[in-house]
Nucleic acid binder design. Structure first.
Lengths: 347, 347
DNA sequence: TTGTAAGCGTTATCAT
DNA sequence: ATGATAACGCTTACAA
């Protein structure tokens, strides 16, 4: 129940004034060496610790940044946040976590809350593609840096850090083709979301570049979970001309599909090759390990944090930066047929 | 670059004083209905939002709580944090995340940082079992509620939320015995950490209760990762009397052991039954799904948050609460022999 | 080199 | 019912 030490108490103790103590503590040049040392020693002796809230009120800088994600208990977002925290912490920033649960209402509400909390910046991955852009203008108007990672929208003044989803989709599809797949279906996430559009574009381009034809019906839009993968697999099994390759935008859907296909006697990768996306930990743990596209989430977090830091240190100028990371295809058993010669990486 | 609206601006606009505006906004009873409405309408019109930092300085309450974990990009901690955020957010609290990377130095530093940031409470899982208890006295002295979850220490005035690790260890071992295992080894984490001591105690008790003898050499202390599991499996393979059951305190070590055993022709679960701990997602995804003990991390987070809320609303009195959650054994293929009759749960 | 005083945005305690 | 003022802890012109 002890009261916290303030600069006033130090001042009183030393027969000085708060201003002097403040200056001594901040190594202000116009202060005598003697008092500086005296003050600093006394501060330590009295267990003085600066009150960040007072500082924040005075300076308008809270040294807090808000991070908004759909949910944090997924490997991807957990890793991105780790990357953010790892680079922001040494710079003296604290990370405030907000989950939207993919609700647009929560997204909007959260932004105001963070703004009221005087955060110095907001890093977010957009949950709802339909979100009204106006929401972001209040952030920009206050000169609070706003950075999107992974799920972005193109807005003037907003920096973004993403992976090249087009390339990821291309690489994945191309590798399937090299394995001999001719009829490749694509399980996509919500096509209103940029990343899924891009992965699909990559899929299409790879098909065309390899002389295969692109069929709109081969793109199946689903939710990114195991059950959806299972459901779709059943549909595929019933097709007259069953696909021999699946490129899924989600590792979970890929897993579900694999399970159902195997239960129905389909051999993987011999009959059907399967590739997922996100490099979830389980993909490499499986006995039948699953080929996937790694998004380097930790680096994405690092980059997003760095972009933020640049933004705050560049006073006056608004910089808008678009960082695009290169995804990595990790070829594993689910898409490695015996006669393989095309493997780029194996982990 | 617009300036934020303050109560002064509203006051000026209306020819009132800031105090009146404040009262109107807070529904203070001694204010005329007319002005209240007028003020509130104007506030909305002017996009007024209260400045949380000023509030925090004035009231000493920041409505921020700090959460300290070794790292957040693991399923367990990610889920606990999700649970915490889910229950604290509706109450108006923000969650500040801090990672220690299992470094004691970071743990200590982080506590001060949070205290300086005037957090209203600290929820943490201890990284370093050797940590000096004095570190926590500064928290308690300031009357900041401190709550340990999962990895705790017994300190007066500190509430804890844990699972019954003893029971978890007991259940896991008992199920292996019911499957017919006679020589069960236990792969333990750092035995200086309470949770691992408890799981080991449960293992021992289950052996004794079933008329098997406990052998100290059957407890092997390792790090909780795949490679360690592989390493130990090799040792087991060379033993004259190879074990027929493995209870691992870590799912990752269990996975590593399984991989190596299978590579060496050992049949699981027929030759060796294996059980892990933590119910990592991959354990149920594997073709050979792995039996594990679920720690209900989300509920743990919920509970920890609730204990905190109780603490802050109970003024004056210090309450110390010890919540112990019941773990759940999820019996899967890695420990389900044909003649099974003892299965409690199957997921 | 040090002190004085104002101000960051609010609320609480006096007055009026 | 409303206004004036001090206070939360700190920094920073401006004075001295």
């Amino acid at each position: 129940m002890k009261k916290k030490t303030t600069i006033y108490q130090i001042a009183e103790q030393l027969g000085l004034t708060a201003a002097t103590v403040s200056r001594a503590l901040n190594n202000n040049p116009k202060i005598s060496e003697a008092t500086r040392e005296l003050v600093q020693k006394t501060a330590i002796k009295m267990n003085y610790e600066p009150n960040k809230v007072a500082l924040a009120l005075k300076s308008g800088k809270s040294y807090n940044v808000g991070v908004i994600v759909p949910r944090i208990d997924t490997n991807f977002f957990g890793s991105v946040i780790r990357g953010i925290e790892d680079t922001l912490h040494p710079e003296g920033y604290q990370v405030i976590i907000c989950q939207t649960n993919n609700l647009q209402s929560r997204e909007i509400e959260t932004i105001s809350t963070l703004l009221n909390a005087q955060v110095d910046g907001i890093l977010m991955s957009i949950s709802a593609p339909e979100i009204n852009i106006n929401v972001f203008s209040q952030v920009l108007n206050k000169n609070v840096p706003l950075i999107f990672f992974d799920r972005k929208k193109d807005i003037e003044g907003v920096s973004t850090v993403t992976i090249n989803d087009f390339e990821g989709g291309y690489m994945a599809t191309d590798q399937l083709i090299q394995q001999g797949c001719k009829r490749i279906v694509h399980l996509s996430g919500n096509q209103k979301i940029e990343i899924f559009q891009e992965r699909c574009r990559g899929y299409k381009r790879a098909l065309l570049d390899n002389g295969l034809k692109f069929d709109k019906d081969s793109v199946i839009e689903i939710k990114s979970n195991i059950d959806e993968g299972k459901r779709v697999a059943k549909i595929l099994l019933d097709m007259k001309d069953m696909p021999d390759g699946i490129f899924s935008s989600s590792d979970f859907a890929a897993l579900g599909a694999i399970k159902t296909l195997k239960e129905n006697g389909i051999k993987i990768p011999d009959d059907v090759c399967v590739t997922g996306f996100a490099n979830e930990p389980f993909t490499k743990f499986m006995e039948l390990s699953i080929t996937s596209v790694d998004q380097s989430p930790v680096e994405m977090g690092n980059m997003a944090a760095n972009v933020f830091l640049e933004q705050v240190t560049t006073k006056g100028f608004k910089i808008e930066k678009k960082v695009v990371l290169t995804p990595q295809l990790l070829v594993r058993k689910s898409s490695s047929r015996k006669n393989d010669s095309s493997q780029k990486t194996k982990i």
